[in-house]
Computed example of a mutant assay.
Amino acid sequence: MKPYPLQCKPEFKERVWGGRALEQFGHQLPDGPIGEGWMIGDHPNGTTSVVNGELAGMGLDQIREQFGEVFFGSKGFSKKNGRFPLLIKLLDCQDDLSVQVHPNDHYDRLPAGELGKTEMWYILDAKPGAKIIYGLKDGVTREQLAAAIDEDRIMDCLNEVTVEAGDSFYIPSGTVHALGAGVLVAEIQQNSDSTYRLYDYGRLGLDGKPRELHIEDSLNVIAYEGSGATFMKTELDRSNAWLTLARSPFFVTEKGQVQGDWPLQTTPESFIIHIICDGTGTIRYADGELTVKPGECYLLPANLGDYTLSGEMTVLRSYLP
């Protein structure tokens, strides 16, 4: 079978902090407050299926089993569980998310087969004054944080950052963080659903009950001496060139502004994922052409080879290092 860019049907997740903003991308949302669109995923809690081309109707797990390294590349599998290594999301945050932290792959209390979670955020849109929580204040120790939690003053220990569209945040495992109300985010992460909540504003969940906190696990996995988290503004000074937003052991994510034709190629080592942030254009490849628009995500097989991004649009590119 000849390779081509794969587009998947998103798996939408109802969240107490979600809304309806993902409809602006043309997505058909189920009822309720939708906080997450899992755009490309191969996880027990959500596996996306292809909607275009010869593989339409097949889940990413089935494609992995049938085409393996040829499609996903020699690096294209988690060493821990053999699955597709990344999970790509769009997040609609109409309310503050819980203050949380993610473990690394080696935390001994992870469920069997589950990965840790290093991730990055790219802010697609933000209401004026929107903020996120990003890390602990300098010098906060486990003991100080535990005391602050007991005394209901955890916010005294946390850094807040005001955000705007185009901001990028790298969030290694061990980083305390929380998205705030009023942001729309593209998230590239390890293929994991492991989240430990430190604080949730006394909020009730969708079931009307207080949401579970995971204080001991959180205190265990926080990187108190610093996790290596970084953030940056991402203005581009030229088109058809990549700006690196995040480089981790698990993924590399870059931003580019397409103007006209931009010839590119995949390699046998890794698939490529493109997220269309704004503008419109096409992806041309040996056997066809796809028209693309904002809010769409495409998985380009490792054996696709030469392809061209064309048009006027901002795109993110992610691949395995």
Rank of each mutant, 00 (worst) to 15 (best):
F251Y: 10
L245M: 12
R238P: 03
Y199H: 13
R203D: 07
L243T: 04
S173T: 07
T195Y: 10
G256Y: 00
A186G: 05
D261K: 11
G182D: 09
L264H: 07
S248N: 01
P210R: 04
L245Q: 05
P263V: 09
K255Y: 07
G174W: 11
G256T: 08
F251C: 04
Q190R: 07
V176R: 06
N240S: 04
G256L: 04
N240K: 08
L213V: 07
G228F: 07
T175Q: 06
I215T: 14
N220H: 15
D237I: 09
V221C: 00
A178C: 13
R197K: 14
Y224H: 06
V252L: 00
E212P: 08
E254P: 02
L236Q: 15
D261F: 08
V176Y: 10
L158K: 06
S239M: 09
G208W: 12
G174H: 04
D261V: 07
T230H: 14
D207P: 08
L179C: 04
Q189N: 00
P263H: 11
T244Q: 11
G226E: 14
T162Q: 14
D200N: 14
S173A: 15
V176F: 12
P172T: 05
L264D: 00
A178E: 14
L184P: 02
F251N: 02
Q257W: 13
E160W: 06
M232I: 03
R247C: 06
G228N: 11
D200S: 08
A229T: 05
I171E: 04
L206W: 12
D261T: 11
A186Q: 13
L179N: 11
Y199V: 07
A165I: 02
D237H: 14
M232V: 08
G166T: 08
V185S: 09
E164F: 12
Y199G: 10
T195L: 05
W262G: 01
Y199T: 07
N240H: 02
N220A: 15
Q189Y: 00
A246F: 02
G166N: 12
L184Y: 04
R211H: 09
E235L: 05
L158S: 10
T230N: 09
S168G: 14
T175W: 01
G260Y: 08
L204C: 01
T195E: 01
K255F: 04
G180S: 13
H214S: 05
F250W: 09
V161E: 13
L243S: 05
G208T: 12
G202P: 03
L198V: 05
A223K: 14
F169N: 00
V221W: 01
E216G: 11
F231S: 06
E164Y: 05
G166Q: 11
